[in-house]
Design a protein around this nucleic acid. Structure first.
Lengths: 143, 143
DNA sequence: AAACTAATACGTAATAATTACTAATTAATG
DNA sequence: CATTAATTAGTAATTATTACGTATTAGTTT
């Protein structure tokens, strides 16, 4: 979590105990998402009166500086950054076990190529299905 | 709207006046999204006591049979199907004027190729930026 | 190390957005 | 036109998010 603290400081955010505890918790979720609701429940065990505002604001700020990623399909789910060296990437989400796999290649040219004169500023991509493990399990279950 | 009614029937959905009126209204939105909230307001002018349930359920059903498309980024926005001949496609959304442009090519192989052993069931893609018109306008505005 | 200050958090409430559920209504079928 | 299964109304509950004034605190300065 040292890296997260550094990034906070680098972006002129204060390092509060609420933030470090939130980041500590989020750090457990790098290959799966966790619901904001569950985060709130957990944080309330440490800070019983913690404001929703504080949680929502911090998650947004963390996302802005690349510490946290929201799930595209369901914005009530977030996870800790899984690749600090390549913050721009997309995810495969297993619909069975929830495991998240980072996608390396990003084919944005595919789209920019068919949009002459347009200014492409951003894009969202997310792929769903069964991870390799779940594919195996479900195949053998059928046979 | 004849086509929409046909598709409803083909999928064993009853053709109610609420549905036809809803589809009539949605039909105005093929190149831009409309908020569910605005839809509700409009429908209430025709059916003052119309239930939220009815609107949400119908929108979901319409989406399932390809009559309606949700915006990926903001699920409170929907639009009428813009391409019945190629229902699987993605959208570019102009962040300035809201205009939606259909993307033709879909590079899903890019992702399946890097996911050996996985079962890819679906994906969501959406591209954002300025459409050609808004790009021009904003360029000339600067110069 | 005390004081300062801008950022952050609290506490409470309001607002959206969505879903739930039962009774009443109605489209489609024969 | 009678039947029935699907659909809708009406009402309320739940979930998710935002708002805002006050209090607290991290980081800085004196």
């Amino acid at each position: 979590m040292e890296k997260a603290i550094e990034i906070l400081k680098k972006n002129n955010y204060k390092v509060t105990k609420q933030r470090t505890d939130l980041l500590d918790y989020l750090g457990k979720f790098t290959v799966q998402y966790v619901s904001i609701n569950q985060i709130t429940n957990y944080m309330h065990t440490i800070y019983p009166g913690m404001s929703n505002n504080t949680i929502y604001r911090n998650l947004k700020e963390f996302a802005n500086i690349g510490l946290v990623e929201y799930q595209e399909k369901d914005k009530t789910l977030v996870k800790y950054q899984c690749d600090f060296k390549n913050k721009h990437h997309h995810h495969f989400v297993c619909t069975n076990c929830g495991k998240v796999t980072e996608l390396k290649a990003c084919p944005i040219e595919f789209f920019t190529d068919q949009l002459p004169g347009y200014t492409v500023e951003g894009h969202a991509i997310e792929v769903y299905g069964l991870c390799a493990d779940c594919t195996k399990k479900l195949k053998t279950a059928k046979s």
